[in-house]
C-alpha cells in the first residue's frame, strides 16, 4: 500500500500560509490580543467587592436568588484560595472567544438558515469542527499565532463556534411558517421579517446555542493552557506536571465554580424571571 503523504502536504500548505499571509495573521493576532487585554484589564482592575456585587446582582436578576447566593459564595471561595486574578484572566479569554464566535457565528447561522445550499455545505463542516478532539486545534493555532493567549483564543473560537451557528440556523428555520406567511402578507421586507419576527422567535434557541458556546469556550480555554494561554488552565496544568495535587484541585474547583455561574446565568437569560429563588 502506498503511503499518502497527507501530513507532508498539510505542512506545505501551512508553510505557504505563514509565509505569504504573515501580515494578515499578525493583524489578527494584534486585534485578538488587544481584546483579551482589554477585558482582562477591566475585570482585574475593578475591585473585588464591586465585582462581587455586580455578579450577584446579575445572577439575581437573570437566574434568581439561589444562583446569586451560590455565585457570592463561589467567588468568595475563589478569592480565599487566591485564584481570583487567574479566574479573571480565564474569564477574559472566555469573553473574548465567545464574543468573536458570536460575531462570526450569528451572521453565519442566519445566512445558513436562508440558504439550503450553504446549509448543506456547512453542516458536515460544523460536525467536523465539533467532533475533532479539542487539542487538535492547538497545533495550527500555534503555527499561525505562536504561543500565548491568542492561539488559545483562536483554537477556542473554532472549537466553540459550531453550537451558536447551528442553533441560530435551527432556531430561525423552526419559526412557524404561518407566522412567516402572515408577515409577508402584511408586506414585511426580508430585513423586517428577520429582525421583527425570525430572530425574536428564534431567540430561545439562539440563547441555548450561546450557552453551549460559552461552556465549550471555558473547557477549551483550560486545555489551551498547554500552549501558554495562562489563567486557571495553567494552574491545573502545573498541578498535574509538578504532581501538586492540592494546587491542581484548587484550580479545577475555580473552573467548576466559574462554569456553574456562567451556565446558570446564560441559561436563564430570556426566560421568564423567577426572583423568588429556586429553579423551576
Amino acid at each position: 500500500m502506498i503511503r499518502l503523504p497527507l501530513g507532508f502536504y498539510v505542512e506545505k500548505g501551512v508553510d505557504w500560509l505563514t509565509n505569504n499571509l504573515d501580515g494578515f495573521f499578525g493583524g489578527i493576532k494584534y486585534a485578538i490580543e488587544s481584546i483579551i487585554n482589554g477585558f482582562e484589564f477591566v475585570y482585574v482592575s475593578v475591585p473585588f467587592v464591586i465585582m462581587l456585587i455586580l455578579i450577584a446582582v446579575l445572577a439575581y436578576f437573570t437566574a434568581g436568588k439561589r444562583t446569586a447566593i451560590f455565585a457570592v459564595f463561589g467567588c468568595l471561595l475563589i478569592k480565599s484560595i487566591e485564584l481570583w486574578q487567574m479566574t479573571m484572566k480565564t474569564f477574559a479569554l472566555v469573553t473574548t472567544a465567545t464574543l468573536i464566535a458570536l460575531i462570526i457565528g450569528l451572521p453565519l447561522g442566519i445566512w445558513m438558515s436562508r440558504s439550503d445550499r450553504l446549509n448543506k455545505v456547512m453542516r458536515p463542516i460544523l460536525d467536523f469542527m465539533q467532533t475533532m478532539p479539542a487539542f487538535v486545534y492547538l497545533i495550527p493555532a500555534v503555527y499561525f499565532f505562536d504561543l500565548g493567549p491568542v492561539p488559545g483564543a483562536v483554537a477556542t473560537i473554532i472549537f466553540a463556534m459550531p453550537p451558536i451557528v447551528r442553533l441560530t440556523s435551527l432556531g430561525i428555520r423552526q419559526v412557524p411558517s404561518d407566522v412567516i406567511e402572515a408577515s409577508r402578507a402584511f408586506g414585511a421586507t426580508p430585513k423586517q421579517m428577520l429582525f421583527k419576527v425570525q430572530i425574536p422567535l428564534a431567540m430561545p434557541t439562539i440563547l441555548a446555542g450561546l450557552n453551549q458556546t460559552i461552556m465549550l469556550s471555558l473547557s477549551m480555554v483550560v486545555i489551551s493552557a498547554m500552549i501558554g494561554s495562562g489563567g486557571l488552565g495553567d494552574v491545573v496544568l502545573k498541578g498535574i506536571s509538578q504532581m501538586k495535587i492540592g494546587d491542581g484541585f484548587e484550580g479545577g474547583l475555580a473552573v467548576v465554580i466559574l462554569a456553574m455561574i456562567l451556565d446558570r446565568v446564560t441559561q436563564s437569560i430570556g426566560k421568564p424571571k423567577n426572583l423568588s429563588g429556586g429553579r423551576k
Binding site: P176, D178, V179, E181, A182, A185, F186, V197, P200, L201
Partner: peptide, 12 residues
C-alpha cells in the same frame, strides 16, 4: 388585509 385559519399571531 389577510386573516388566517390558525390565526398566525406573533407569539412574542
Amino acid at each position: 388585509g389577510m386573516v388566517f385559519q390558525n390565526f398566525a399571531l406573533l407569539p412574542h
